[in-house]
C-alpha cells in the first residue's frame, strides 16, 4: 500500500484537475473490478459499485490536492497566483512548484534586506508572492503557461525515521490508496462486505464545493465512511489540549468536527470493532476542520456518517507527514467494519 501511496501522491491533481489521479487509480484497480458497475460522473467523481448484502454504504476519499492557479503574468515574466484550497502563506516562500504541463518554478518573495521593518517577521501575503519559472519577459512566460493554469507543490515522497512518511498530497491520496487496497481485497475474497458497498473517489474537496455532493446525491447511501487525513499539531510548542491527535497513535475515529457531528451509534460501533480487533485508535481532542462528510450527511434522505483519518503534520504544505502505523490502522478498521454487520 505504501508503494501505491508513493505513486498516487506524485500524480498531479489540484481541485478541478483530477484527471491524472483518476487515470492512475483506474489503471491500478481495473483488473479487480471486472463485472462491476463503474463510472465517472459529470463532476469527475469515479464511482465503483462493488455490491454486497446489506444497507447501502458509501466509502469515499478525495482525489484532489491543494495547489495554485495562475491569475496573471507580469511584464517581467513572473506569475501572480491564487491558492486552490486552504494554504497558509507561511508555507510558501522559496518552495518548488510544478505546472500541469511540467513547467517547474519557484515561489519568490522579497529578500529580507528589502523588507520594511513592519513586514519583517510577518507571514507573507499571497498577493506579494509570485512564481518564477525562469522567464524574463511576459512573452517568454506565455509560451510556458497561461492564466488559469494549475501548479502544485513539487515535492518527493520520502520514508524516514521509524515509520514516518513525508510527501505532497498525502491528503487525501492515502484515502485513495486505502480504497484501492480494499477493492483488491474484496476481489480476492479476503473481505465479504456486509453492506451494499460503493467506493467513490471524489473531486474538489479542497475547495469546499465537493464532488462528494454529487456522488452522494447519486448513490444515496444509508451509511458513509470518509477516509481522510486530519491536521494535527503534536509538535514542540503546542500544548497538549490543542494538538488534536498524535501521529502513531492509530486511526482517528472522529466524534465531531466543524462540518459534521458524526453519527453517534455508527461511531461507537466502529470504535468497538477497532477495540475488539486490537487496532490502535484515538479520537480528536479538538474540534476543527471539515470534509466531504458534511455534504454526504445532509444530502438526499441523509446518511449516517463517520470519518476515519490518519493524523497529518504540516498538512497542505509540500511536506505532509503521516505515520505508517496510522495508515495501516485506518485500512484495517474499514476492512473490519466491512466484515461486520451494521450497527443495531
Amino acid at each position: 500500500m505504501k508503494e501505491l501511496l508513493n505513486k498516487l501522491s506524485l500524480e498531479f491533481g489540484p481541485s478541478g484537475c483530477e484527471d491524472r489521479v483518476r487515470e492512475a487509480i483506474k489503471e491500478e484497480i481495473k483488473d479487480y473490478i471486472v463485472g462491476k458497475e463503474s463510472f465517472v460522473d459529470p463532476l469527475g467523481n469515479y464511482i465503483i459499485h462493488i455490491g454486497g448484502n446489506g444497507p447501502k454504504l458509501m466509502i469515499s476519499a478525495h482525489m484532489d490536492e491543494v495547489g495554485f492557479m495562475v491569475k496573471g503574468i507580469t511584464d517581467e515574466g513572473l506569475l501572480k497566483f491564487g491558492t486552490v484550497g486552504g494554504i497558509d502563506p507561511i508555507c510558501l516562500g522559496a518552495k518548488r512548484v510544478i505546472s500541469e504541463s511540467g513547467v517547474r518554478g519557484n515561489i519568490v518573495m522579497k529578500p529580507i534586506h528589502l523588507l520594511s521593518p513592519s513586514e519583517r517577521g510577518q507571514a507573507p501575503k499571497i498577493k506579494n508572492l509570485s512564481i518564477d519559472i525562469g522567464a524574463s519577459t511576459k512573452k517568454e512566460a506565455e509560451e510556458l503557461t497561461f492564466v488559469g493554469d494549475y501548479f502544485t507543490f513539487d515535492s518527493d515522497y520520502v520514508e524516514y525515521g521509524e515509520g514516518f512518511i513525508k510527501g505532497k498530497a498525502l491528503d487525501d491520496r492515502l484515502g485513495c490508496a486505502i480504497m484501492c487496497q480494499l477493492i483488491k481485497d474484496i476481489y480476492e475474497g479476503k473481505i465479504e462486505p456486509k453492506y451494499d458497498t460503493y467506493f467513490a473517489f471524489t473531486t474538489r474537496e479542497e475547495i469546499g464545493y465537493s464532488g462528494a455532493y454529487g456522488a452522494s446525491m447519486r448513490i444515496r447511501p444509508q451509511y458513509a465512511i470518509v477516509i481522510e487525513s486530519k491536521a494535527v499539531a503534536d509538535i514542540y510548542g503546542v500544548d497538549e489540549d490543542s494538538e488534536v491527535a498524535r501521529l502513531g497513535d492509530g486511526v482517528i475515529i472522529s466524534f465531531a468536527d466543524r462540518g459534521a457531528i458524526y453519527d453517534h451509534t455508527f461511531v461507537k460501533h466502529i470504535k468497538a470493532i477497532a477495540d475488539k480487533n486490537e487496532i490502535k485508535n484515538q479520537t480528536n481532542r479538538y474540534i476543527s476542520g471539515g470534509n466531504d462528510s458534511m455534504h454526504i450527511q445532509k444530502n438526499a434522505e441523509g446518511a449516517r456518517v463517520s470519518t476515519l483519518s490518519c493524523a497529518s503534520r504540516y498538512i497542505h504544505s509540500q511536506s505532509d507527514v503521516i505515520h505508517e502505523d496510522d495508515l495501516f490502522a485506518t485500512y484495517e478498521t474499514v476492512k473490519e467494519v466491512l466484515k461486520n454487520d451494521r450497527p443495531n
Partner: peptide, 13 residues
C-alpha cells in the same frame, strides 16, 4: 443549532 443540518434530508424526503 449547528446550522440547520437535519431539516435538509427531512425536507428532501
Amino acid at each position: 443549532e449547528v446550522g440547520s443540518r437535519g431539516s435538509k434530508p427531512a425536507t428532501f424526503a
